[in-house]
Protein backbone atom coordinates (compact mmCIF):
# COMPACT_ATOMS: atom_id res chain seq x y z
CA UNK A 1 0.00 0.00 0.00
CA UNK A 2 1.50 3.26 -1.11
CA UNK A 3 2.26 5.82 1.57
CA UNK A 4 0.56 9.17 1.30
CA UNK A 5 2.41 12.46 1.33
CA UNK A 6 0.71 15.83 1.52
CA UNK A 7 2.46 18.68 -0.25
CA UNK A 8 1.56 22.17 0.95
CA UNK A 9 2.99 25.06 -1.04
CA UNK A 10 1.49 28.12 -2.66
CA UNK A 11 3.77 27.77 -5.65
CA UNK A 12 2.06 25.42 -8.06
CA UNK A 13 5.34 24.70 -9.81
CA UNK A 14 6.95 23.58 -6.57
CA UNK A 15 3.92 21.42 -5.82
CA UNK A 16 4.10 20.00 -9.31
CA UNK A 17 7.78 19.18 -9.21
CA UNK A 18 7.61 17.63 -5.74
CA UNK A 19 4.49 15.74 -6.58
CA UNK A 20 5.82 14.31 -9.83
CA UNK A 21 9.01 13.27 -8.07
CA UNK A 22 7.10 11.63 -5.21
CA UNK A 23 4.67 9.87 -7.51
CA UNK A 24 7.47 8.54 -9.65
CA UNK A 25 9.04 7.11 -6.49
CA UNK A 26 5.78 5.38 -5.59
CA UNK A 27 4.12 7.68 -3.08
CA UNK A 28 0.53 8.90 -3.23
CA UNK A 29 0.29 12.66 -3.12
CA UNK A 30 -2.26 15.13 -1.86
CA UNK A 31 -1.60 18.73 -2.89
CA UNK A 32 -2.70 21.82 -0.97
CA UNK A 33 -2.00 25.45 -1.79
CA UNK A 34 -1.68 26.78 1.76
CA UNK A 35 -2.14 25.83 5.40
CA UNK A 36 -5.87 26.45 5.35
CA UNK A 37 -6.40 24.43 2.20
CA UNK A 38 -4.30 21.65 3.71
CA UNK A 39 -6.31 21.51 6.95
CA UNK A 40 -9.50 21.37 4.91
CA UNK A 41 -8.13 18.41 2.99
CA UNK A 42 -7.22 16.44 6.15
CA UNK A 43 -10.49 14.57 6.38
CA UNK A 44 -9.47 11.46 8.26
CA UNK A 45 -7.52 9.63 5.57
CA UNK A 46 -4.09 8.34 6.56
CA UNK A 47 -1.31 10.81 5.76
CA UNK A 48 2.20 9.46 6.39
CA UNK A 49 4.16 12.63 5.80
CA UNK A 50 3.59 16.31 5.15
CA UNK A 51 5.81 18.69 3.26
CA UNK A 52 5.03 22.32 3.93
CA UNK A 53 6.38 25.62 2.75
CA UNK A 54 6.87 28.28 5.44
CA UNK A 55 5.73 31.41 3.65
CA UNK A 56 2.25 31.00 2.32
CA UNK A 57 -0.84 33.18 2.06
CA UNK A 58 -3.97 32.46 4.16
CA UNK A 59 -2.13 30.28 6.63
CA UNK A 60 1.65 30.08 6.85
CA UNK A 61 3.64 26.93 7.47
CA UNK A 62 4.36 27.55 11.14
CA UNK A 63 0.70 28.06 11.97
CA UNK A 64 -0.11 25.00 9.91
CA UNK A 65 2.28 22.88 11.98
CA UNK A 66 0.74 24.19 15.19
CA UNK A 67 -2.75 23.36 13.89
CA UNK A 68 -1.72 19.86 12.78
CA UNK A 69 -0.32 19.20 16.27
CA UNK A 70 -3.84 19.84 17.59
CA UNK A 71 -5.45 17.20 15.39
CA UNK A 72 -5.54 13.80 17.17
CA UNK A 73 -5.42 11.88 13.90
CA UNK A 74 -2.47 13.78 12.48
CA UNK A 75 -0.49 15.18 15.40
CA UNK A 76 2.36 12.68 15.08
CA UNK A 77 2.73 13.00 11.34
CA UNK A 78 6.28 13.88 10.35
CA UNK A 79 6.48 17.25 8.63
CA UNK A 80 9.24 18.44 6.36
CA UNK A 81 9.44 22.22 6.30
CA UNK A 82 10.73 24.00 3.25
CA UNK A 83 12.89 26.91 4.19
CA UNK A 84 15.34 29.33 2.73
CA UNK A 85 18.64 29.86 4.45
CA UNK A 86 17.70 33.39 5.46
CA UNK A 87 14.80 32.21 7.58
CA UNK A 88 16.69 31.37 10.78
CA UNK A 89 14.05 32.89 13.05
CA UNK A 90 11.31 31.04 11.19
CA UNK A 91 13.26 27.88 11.74
CA UNK A 92 13.40 28.48 15.48
CA UNK A 93 9.68 29.20 15.51
CA UNK A 94 9.07 26.04 13.57
CA UNK A 95 11.20 24.00 15.92
CA UNK A 96 9.25 25.35 18.84
CA UNK A 97 6.08 24.24 17.07
CA UNK A 98 7.53 20.74 16.72
CA UNK A 99 8.92 20.73 13.18
CA UNK A 100 12.21 18.84 13.01
CA UNK A 101 12.85 18.15 9.37
CA UNK A 102 13.97 20.97 7.13
CA UNK A 103 14.83 21.06 3.48
CA UNK A 104 16.45 24.18 2.16
CA UNK A 105 15.05 25.79 -0.97
CA UNK A 106 15.96 25.61 -3.74
CA UNK A 107 16.24 21.86 -3.81
CA UNK A 108 16.29 19.29 -6.54
CA UNK A 109 13.65 16.59 -6.74
CA UNK A 110 16.25 14.01 -5.82
CA UNK A 111 17.17 15.89 -2.64
CA UNK A 112 13.53 16.01 -1.66
CA UNK A 113 13.14 12.29 -2.30
CA UNK A 114 16.19 11.58 -0.14
CA UNK A 115 14.77 13.66 2.69
CA UNK A 116 11.38 11.99 2.39
CA UNK A 117 12.85 8.51 2.32
CA UNK A 118 14.63 9.15 5.61
CA UNK A 119 11.24 9.55 7.21
CA UNK A 120 9.17 7.15 5.22
CA UNK A 121 9.81 4.75 2.38
CA UNK A 122 7.10 4.43 -0.25
Amino acid sequence: MAKTVMVVDDSSSVRQVVSIALKSAGYDVIEASDGKDALAKLTGQKVHLMISDVNMPNMDGITFVKEVKKLPAYKFTPIIMLTTESQETKKLEGQAAGARAWVVKPFQPAQMLAAVSKLILP
Binding site: F76, T77, P78, I79, G98, A99, R100, A101, S117, K118, L119, I120, L121
Partner: peptide, 17 residues
Protein backbone atom coordinates in the same frame (compact mmCIF):
# COMPACT_ATOMS: atom_id res chain seq x y z
CA UNK B 1 11.43 11.72 18.73
CA UNK B 2 8.12 9.93 18.23
CA UNK B 3 6.05 12.91 19.22
CA UNK B 4 7.95 14.95 16.64
CA UNK B 5 6.76 12.55 14.00
CA UNK B 6 10.06 10.74 13.61
CA UNK B 7 10.06 6.96 13.67
CA UNK B 8 13.46 5.41 14.45
CA UNK B 9 12.49 2.44 12.32
CA UNK B 10 12.31 4.78 9.33
CA UNK B 11 15.98 5.67 9.77
CA UNK B 12 16.89 1.99 9.90
CA UNK B 13 15.00 1.39 6.69
CA UNK B 14 16.76 4.34 5.14
CA UNK B 15 20.12 2.92 6.20
CA UNK B 16 19.19 -0.29 4.46
CA UNK B 17 18.54 1.69 1.31
Amino acid sequence: VLRNGMDPLAFLRYLNS
